[in-house]
Computed example of a mutant assay.
Amino acid sequence: MAAASPSSLHVDIVSGFDPALVRVHGDLDIASAPSLRAALAPLLHRRVELDLTDVAFIDSSGINALTAHHRHCGLAGGRITVIESSRPVQRVLHITGVDAILTHPRDPEDPDRGRREDPPRTP
């Protein structure tokens, strides 16, 4: 299942796993945040791992989309966790404090703990 917006955002959802894997590609901004919200909406009740490695830019609209989904997940019994992100996104998540609610530090003694074998990336 995939969703795309008129902007440069593309969302790939691998829902056959638990947790579901969601890979986001492009810029997460005011033009594309509604597309991300729409793509994540059916997953509110699920555990979701979000891969933002291919997101080069995120603004307050993108942050708002992520935190709103986090809140709605909590009410619906789901959870969203950012498992990977690009350096620019990591920086914004850290500066805004959103990393404290959406990311979980890896155990340095077991960096793969809790990780499953992901399906291969598609170009």
Results as ranks from 00 to 15, higher is better:
residue 7 S to W: 03
residue 63 I to T: 03
residue 50 L to T: 11
residue 27 D to F: 15
residue 46 R to V: 04
residue 89 V to G: 04
residue 111 P to F: 10
residue 90 Q to E: 02
residue 26 G to W: 08
residue 85 S to E: 07
residue 18 D to G: 00
residue 71 R to D: 11
residue 1 M to G: 15
residue 94 H to V: 10
residue 11 V to C: 14
residue 57 F to N: 03
residue 121 R to P: 14
residue 72 H to W: 01
residue 30 I to T: 11
residue 8 S to H: 11
residue 73 C to S: 14
residue 45 H to Y: 03
residue 38 A to G: 01
residue 57 F to W: 00
residue 105 P to Y: 09
residue 101 I to A: 08
residue 89 V to A: 05
residue 88 P to C: 10
residue 52 L to F: 07
residue 114 G to A: 04
residue 112 D to S: 08
residue 112 D to I: 08
residue 62 G to E: 06
residue 59 D to I: 02
residue 107 D to E: 08
residue 47 R to L: 01
residue 114 G to Q: 07
residue 89 V to N: 02
residue 23 R to A: 14
residue 77 G to D: 11
residue 79 R to N: 05
residue 8 S to K: 12
residue 86 S to T: 02
residue 71 R to K: 13
residue 46 R to Q: 01
residue 24 V to Q: 08
residue 71 R to F: 10
residue 67 T to N: 03
residue 121 R to N: 11
residue 88 P to S: 12
residue 101 I to E: 05
residue 25 H to V: 15
residue 101 I to S: 09
residue 12 D to K: 09
residue 101 I to H: 04
residue 52 L to W: 05
residue 36 L to D: 09
residue 121 R to A: 14
residue 108 P to K: 07
residue 112 D to H: 14
residue 123 P to L: 13
residue 47 R to N: 04
residue 22 V to S: 06
residue 57 F to R: 00
residue 98 V to I: 13
residue 110 D to Q: 11
residue 82 V to D: 01
residue 12 D to V: 14
residue 100 A to H: 03
residue 88 P to W: 09
residue 46 R to E: 00
residue 115 R to T: 05
residue 59 D to L: 03
residue 81 T to S: 13
residue 8 S to V: 13
residue 44 L to I: 02
residue 107 D to G: 04
residue 71 R to V: 09
residue 37 R to Y: 03
residue 91 R to S: 10
residue 102 L to W: 03
residue 58 I to N: 01
residue 52 L to P: 12
residue 63 I to Y: 01
residue 40 L to H: 04
residue 109 E to L: 14
residue 102 L to I: 11
residue 110 D to P: 06
residue 38 A to Y: 01
residue 16 G to F: 01
residue 60 S to Y: 03
residue 105 P to V: 09
residue 51 D to T: 08
residue 76 A to Q: 14
residue 64 N to W: 01
residue 25 H to F: 07
residue 31 A to F: 11
residue 47 R to Q: 06
residue 29 D to N: 12
residue 43 L to V: 07
residue 10 H to K: 12
residue 10 H to N: 07
residue 21 L to Q: 12
residue 2 A to H: 14
residue 22 V to K: 05
residue 84 E to I: 01
residue 28 L to M: 07
residue 55 V to L: 01
residue 101 I to P: 03
residue 123 P to H: 13
residue 88 P to K: 10
residue 58 I to L: 08
residue 55 V to N: 00
residue 18 D to P: 00
residue 9 L to Y: 01
residue 78 G to T: 03
